[in-house]
Design a protein around this nucleic acid. Sequence first.
DNA 1: ATGGTCGTGGGACGA
Length: 259
Amino acid sequence: MKIATFNINGIKARHQALSDWLDEAQPDVALLQEIKSVDEGFPREMFEDKGYNVETHGQKGFNGVAILSKYPLEDVTRGLPGDDEDEQARWIEATVVGKRAVRLCGLYLPNGNPAPGPKYDYKLSWMERLKARAEALLESEEPALMAGDYNVIPQSEDAAKPEQWTEDALYRPETRAAFRRILNLGFTEAFRARVQGPGHYSFWDYQAGAWQKNNGIRIDHLLLTPQAADMMTGCGIDKEIRDREKPSDHVPVWIELDA
DNA sequence: ATGGTCGTGGGACGA
């Protein structure tokens, strides 16, 4: 089962590019972020026609997450637990049933800039709630994963120019420490479990020729419970689609699971 | 040091 995460940066602008990538990459599951659409505005038929089941958690204008799956999706829930006041659409869960059942969590973690400030406070508190959900997933002892745009650069090797990010909410020490606290509960960060060293990115800013200069960062991650990590047989980044017409500023990151 | 680019929705704001 091939499972990908992809921040598409707006479904209205990206439905064709997304469709083309699905045809080529043939993921069984795609966890999407920044659909920037209400549920009714998501062109579900385009993907249902390709054989995907579609579940969305949208909002007007910003944020929004979705799951496309060629296998049935069960027990869908929306919203990260822990704050009933949080209106932002950044979390969706479902169980995908292939050979085995896998719990999928799709997430769009807050950017947090400017830091310090209220947006950074929201990011850190959201990460605390994420940690609580992560602990519950581990306690279930089932195959599960949390994948999406984490807006976290885990280590200096995950940025082409780490010195440019020292004050940024994506790289501040508090951000990386909060990410490590989740990892250290017992999750496997899929890409780093299989590929070592610098030069692997999932995001290049639209500004200042970042793509042309390969000034990228790696901020899209898949975190696997031990039971899911045992099933992983492959992992990759579809970097090449960043070079196409009207690309997202992110590219897909995927794993292959024996599930 | 500044401005550099997108998407949404038809303003600024978010990134």
